[in-house]
Design a protein around this nucleic acid. Structure first.
Length: 850
DNA sequence: TGTAACGTTAGG
DNA sequence: CCTAACGTTACA
């Protein structure tokens, strides 16, 4: 019943011209301007609640300019005593219960500033942005147009719906559903607004009114902190929210229900349900549902988004929350889109944050390198001393502030873990607690501006020397492709560095790590609220805009140190700790990455030990919203074998840069990334890659698959290799891609070792595809051990006969394949039992019994 | 198209 | 009566 893209201004009710004709009980006025909205099926309707006794001069004047509505057959009934007469819309009022209503005015927003109490002229007469009611209610004086009584939902526990007042968003009539004569016709409840529906009369007449919104939308959408802007932009960009455009997409790609999601071992994103029935007149009256449960709502909002002050979000959640299954199914799409909007907003903020962070860390990095260079000189002077020194010796705790307490980290933490972090935190319209932070940050930066040009020039030279020096020493590239040099970091450096930060120098040097490494390794820390894991089934924001990685090129990478780490922990007076490094390593092996990061802050030796790549074989940045250069360098330093960058908005450049520096990478997970990013694999070689996960990569189709599998375009000397870049891939995950047999042919040809293939949710995959994979002469016929074809609706029972040809097949996942029957699976088991014993682990999930 | 303005309503 | 602010129009 809800359709996307219907967010509109506070004007709310906007009947179409057609409706307007049937709509005639009250004089209504259509402004000329509103006709332009007609295309969007919207037409402004100026209605006063009691127009019969309200005819202001201005209104009368205006009326002359407006097209007059056609008056219906029935005479306009003036019901001065009954303000709920059809056509006259009751103004809604605050619910006084919702999160927004319970807030106090922010005093900072546009409207607050206008208020007299905040020293403004008081002309705008609008509610504080932060207080715009989520669930505006009918006024207490509203009564049923039929029986003239008020809503009685409070008095009756049972079937409250029939006795509560419902306002039709089309004809504006307020009635008790029970008081309606036509009982078998369907009313469609608008679950975005309390007591709002499309009444049976209007619904039966096929009128489609726009849904009323609560107050606040008109303005909120244009002010900082509003998600509505994003909604709007979504609507505009590619029309992704329009049902018209979504429908074909829906037909192409199999979608699934939330409950199915759980049962699949991988969790692809929530997409639209395959069917989204638009409520039709013949539908029965919707079951009433719990619309506004504040507690639950708040709780949910907190869980999903953090303690946001953004008023829209709880509203969005209303839409998500439903009680009956049918509704739930309907809402998946809505939920998806809503979350996308939320996520989009969030990612935007994250992006900006990370940008700031990047600049700051860049400065840190450079500082660190200057220091490192110094320490290199020191090292040459007395390498023994270098190894012998204990951190405490050279840097007593009294001098070195705890990393957690450095301003930088303070601010990092405030970034990352602030429960306030959220869409609304950006625009400065945030109330109360938001104030000090930006100011504090600005304060820190004040001295930066005092940097003299000469000083910065000298520093830059120093940095350059350091970089050169390191480049020579480490035989590893220190700078990434310098082609897109950007002045931004330099500026940032000039204005943004704090030369007095000797402590920072020390810290950077001592830790040989970055703030990120030490404290931000994990997404749960990086992203506010640990949002990354909270909604496993939700498709995160498609990486529309890759992170701003302009600084990346300039970001210096510290490779793993060449000199072996000390075998024992140096103590004071040249003594060493009794426990050997390898023992420590065993202990560290039991720690989480987060804990390792803490350990890295303990001392220099631990710092090096904890960076041992054995402890970091798998780095998981799944759903980490922004991948910063510091993270990239952290990854390089640890040289993981497995890297999970799924659902991140990593850019092509970043990924390309990474892969080229991770020659030993075995597992690369890029689910849900953009094709733009994934295309980095086309030009880079990762010969040892065993697992490649590109499921749900947007825009990855046959043509892209061809690029991915064709020999590298990179023809640098020594890299000339006509073989497929991914020739050693054993495990390929293509779930949710629009790939056809053309891609499968390429895979068969170029991935001779392919053992596990995930084609779930691939709508184009059919029996012929299975035939290809198992055809005589293909390597996949014998190499395939696990094939996932779940939710491939074109696959039928026939595929099972093809699988009989597979020599090594151990698992065939045909769950949720509509055309695959249980009988066929059983038959497969029976026929295979001659050579191999198979069993059904789940319905249509065939597994070899060992 | 976005925003300022304002008449008027709702609640107390 | 007051204040708050909804829903609309006018205008830049």
């Amino acid at each position: 019943m809800k359709r996307e893209g219907e967010i509109e201004g506070r004007g709310g009710l906007r009947p179409t011209g057609e409706q307007q004709q049937c709509w005639s009980l009250q004089p209504c006025q259509i402004s000329p301007q509103s006709w332009t909205d007609d295309k969007k099926e919207t037409m402004a309707l100026s209605l006063s609640a009691d127009e019969e006794d309200y005819e202001s001069e201005s209104e009368q004047q205006q009326a002359a300019n407006r097209p007059k509505p056609k008056v219906g057959t029935s005479a306009a009934v003036k019901l001065p005593s009954n303000r709920s007469a059809s056509g006259a819309r009751r103004r809604r009022t605050r619910c006084r219960k919702c999160e927004a209503c319970l807030r106090t005015e922010c005093g900072e927003c546009h409207f607050c500033k206008d208020m007299k109490k905040f020293g403004g002229p008081g002309r705008m007469k609008q509610s504080c942005i932060m207080r715009q009611c989520i669930a505006p209610v009918l006024p207490h004086t509203a009564v049923c147009v039929v029986c003239g009584e008020a809503g009685k939902e409070d008095t009756l526990e049972e079937d409250r719906f029939s006795v509560m007042l419902m306002e039709c968003s089309i004809c504006n009539e307020i009635v008790h559903p029970n008081c309606l004569k036509v009982k078998d016709a369907a009313g469609v409840v608008n679950d975005e607004l309390p007591n709002c529906w499309e009444c049976p009369k209007c619904n039966y007449a096929g009128k489609s009114g726009k849904q009323k919104r609560g107050p606040g939308f008109k303005y909120a959408s244009n002010l900082p902190g509003s998600l509505l802007r994003e909604q709007k932009s979504i609507k505009e960009e590619g029309e992704s929210t329009s049902t018209a455009k979504r429908k074909p997409e829906r037909d192409e790609t199999p979608r699934y229900r939330p409950e199915e999601r759980e049962s699949l071992h991988r969790q692809p994103p929530v997409l639209s349900p395959s069917t989204l029935p638009r409520p039709r007149p013949e539908d029965n009256l919707r079951k009433k549902r719990k619309l506004f449960d504040d507690d639950e709502e708040e709780d949910f909002a907190l869980r999903k988004k953090g303690q946001s002050d953004e008023p829209l979000f709880p509203r969005l959640l209303h839409q998500i929350k439903t009680e009956d299954n049918q509704e739930e199914e309907l809402d998946v799409e809505e939920k998806d889109s809503l979350y996308r909007r939320v996520l989009e907003r969030r990612s935007h903020i994250e992006e900006r944050r990370s940008h700031i962070e990047e600049r700051r860390s860049h400065i840190e990095e450079r500082r660190g390198h200057i220091e490192e260079r110094r320490s290199h000189i020191e090292e040459r002077r007395s390498s023994i001393e270098e190894f012998g020194e204990d951190r405490n010796d050279e840097d007593p705790k009294t001098d070195l502030p705890s990393p957690l307490k450095t301003p930088l980290l303070d601010s990092d933490q405030s970034h990352c873990s602030s429960p306030q972090a959220g869409p609304s935190s950006e625009g400065g319209s945030e109330p109360q607690d938001k104030g000090p932070r930006p100011k504090a940050r600005r304060k820190r930066r004040v001295p930066h501006k005092e940097l003299s040009k000469e000083l910065s020039k000298a520093l830059n030279q120093e940095i350059q020397k350091t970089e050169d020096c390191l480049a020579n020493e480490n035989r590893q590239p220190l700078k990434v492709e310098p082609e897109s040099e950007n002045e931004e970091p330099r500026r940032g450096f000039r204005h943004g560095s704090d030369l007095g930060g000797e402590r920072l120098h020390l810290r950077t040097k001592e830790m040989n790590g970055t703030p990120w490494e030490l404290h931000h390794f994990y997404p749960s820390q990086i992203t506010p609220l640990g949002f990354n894991r909270s909604s496993p089934g939700t498709r995160p924001l498609p990486p529309l805009s890759p992170p701003k990685c302009v600084q990346m090129e300039r970001h210096v990478i510290r490779p793993p140190p060449i000199s072996p780490p000390p075998d024992r922990l140096p103590l004071v007076a040249g003594k060493t700790h009794a426990v050997q490094r390898e023992i420590w390593m065993k202990i560290f092996g039991h720690l989480t990455h987060k804990e390792l990061c803490v350990c890295m802050g303990v001392c220099k030796t631990w710092n090096r030990w904890c960076c041992d790549k054995r402890l970091w074989t798998r780095i998981d940045l799944n759903r980490c919203k922004s991948i910063t250069p510091l993270m990239l360098s952290g990854i390089i330093r640890r040289q993981p074998l497995a890297l999970d960058l799924s659902w991140t908005n990593i850019s092509k450049k970043q990924l390309s840069w990474l892969i080229n520096r991770l020659p030993g990478l075995r597992v690369l997970l890029l689910a849900g990334c953009s094709w733009m990013a994934v295309s980095a694999l086309c030009t880079s070689s990762c010969p040892l890659l065993r697992t490649l996960d590109v499921q749900w990569v947007e825009g990855l189709k046959d043509a892209q698959m061809r690029d991915l599998l064709s020999p590298p375009t990179d023809n640098r000397p020594g890299q000339l290799d006509n073989r497929c870049k991914l020739r050693n891939v054993l495990d390929l995950r293509l779930a949710g891609l629009d790939v056809t047999d053309a891609s499968l042919r390429l895979i068969i040809r170029h991935m001779p070792l392919l053992s596990k293939l995930d084609l779930s949710y691939c709508n184009h995959v059919n029996d012929q595809s299975v035939n290809l994979l198992t055809a005589a002469g293909t390597t996949t016929r014998d190499s395939l051990t696990e094939v996932n074809l779940s939710v491939c609706n074109r696959v039928t029972d026939h595929s099972l006969t093809f699988f009989k040809r597979c020599g090594s097949i151990c698992q065939i996942d045909l769950r949720y394949c509509k055309q695959v029957t249980k009988t066929a699976c059983e038959q497969f088991i029976a026929e295979m039992s001659v050579s191999v014993q198979f069993g059904l682990k789940e319905e249509k999930l065939l597994q070899k019994l060992s």
